[in-house]
Design a protein around this nucleic acid. Structure first.
Lengths: 202, 202
DNA sequence: TGAAAATTCTATAATCCTATAGATTTATAT
DNA sequence: ATATAAATCTATAGGATTATAGAATTTTCA
């Protein structure tokens, strides 16, 4: 049988533990902020010692990078799954909103970290994130463009502006949902969908 | 003539320098985050030595507190001024949006610090901020309620939800305006007003 | 089982940070 | 001009933090 690769850092086991380390980092970064969190905090949360964390991360900064990447990849993945379906605009809209808000409610710490802490990465370390974020926005924008083309939305709509505004709205309510446990997820999804569609005017 | 108070920390001069210290703290906290910023950074930005900063602040935490308070007081002040005028709903709405967004564009670092860093204050230190924030939201909510009552907005509108959503929208575009220098302030104000009023539906 | 590889641990170097105490300089007012 | 008060400075105690090196332990599999 073919031998395993020399470097076991490519084994499933290592990858699984590394994933757990990324989740631990996400959780700590989310509650204390990147600079407020220490590598000791993360290691303790994982059940190992501070120095051992460097078996999984090259540096603290690298940990932040991985957390943001993980969040954004799953985020874009969900968006792709929705985008590829044949569905009426309003249904797609509410599915996108649900995907976004339920991520927060499920305490997806990584997503919060991406939104709130990614700017602490040096510019050069943000290129991949920028690309993924841009991909996400383009999908969303295309959903709005399709809505306009099918006559579901007003023809003079600025789809780019609408897509970004929806992201802003969802980030706001998402962070609210993760802090205010009493807030209803379904109700928030419905209201976000409605206000995005119809605004406040009669 | 009556002598000056014994403690000169109540003089105008001291207050003016303290204000500058608060602004310096705001600027540093905004760019590096509360935990990422050091008291040395702030002092250097002010042109004094690290230790001297403690002539103006009891602690680093106290500096954050003051920055947030300053931001929120001016923010609520602007809102009151708008609220008290007799104006049609749509005009008031766009004035509120303008006040919010131009604060960001004028690089109002303090407002960004309040929005992004206030949660690093311990719970007990956030009571005043909570009250001010709540006051702001109530004014905004009342503007929406008035809009409904005057038949300018749909009668089934959830004014509370609408007010919070507008705050989320403005925070998003505000932070965009402060980062993306090319973005037009007036255009952003108009589009925020329009999407809040009419949404995306035809 | 036992050797090799993977994983975790301990200890530490080299900063960096907050807050305070007390000395020093600058401004104010008669 | 000088006494008093205000503002700033220097120096430092007492910790905390990141990253690394090398030892110790655990896992894997022939």
């Amino acid at each position: 049988m073919h031998p395993m690769t020399a470097n076991m850092r490519s084994t499933t086991k290592y990858q699984q533990q590394r994933e757990k380390a990324i989740e631990a980092a996400a959780s700590i970064f989310a509650s204390k902020g990147y600079h407020g969190a220490s590598t000791k905090d993360i290691a303790t949360h994982l059940g190992i010692r501070q120095g051992s964390l460097y078996y999984y991360f090259k540096s603290k900064e690298n940990a932040l990078e991985e957390v943001c990447l993980m969040a954004l990849k799953s985020y874009v993945g969900k968006m792709e799954a929705i985008f590829d379906q044949e569905l009426p605009f309003e249904k797609k809209l509410s599915m996108v909103i649900r995907a976004h808000l339920s991520s927060y409610r499920e305490n997806n710490a990584a997503l919060r970290v991406h939104n709130e802490q990614r700017l602490y990465l040096p510019k050069g370390r943000r290129d991949k994130l920028k690309d993924l974020g841009s991909t996400y926005r383009q999908y969303l924008e295309q959903i709005f463009i399709d809505g306009v083309n099918k006559g579901k939305l007003r023809p003079n709509l600025d789809s780019h502006f609408a897509a970004l505004s929806l992201i802003g709205l969802c980030n706001y309510w998402g962070s609210m949902l993760s802090r205010e446990r009493g807030l209803s997820l379904d109700e928030t999804i419905n209201k976000c969908t409605e206000i995005t569609m119809h605004g406040c005017h009669q």
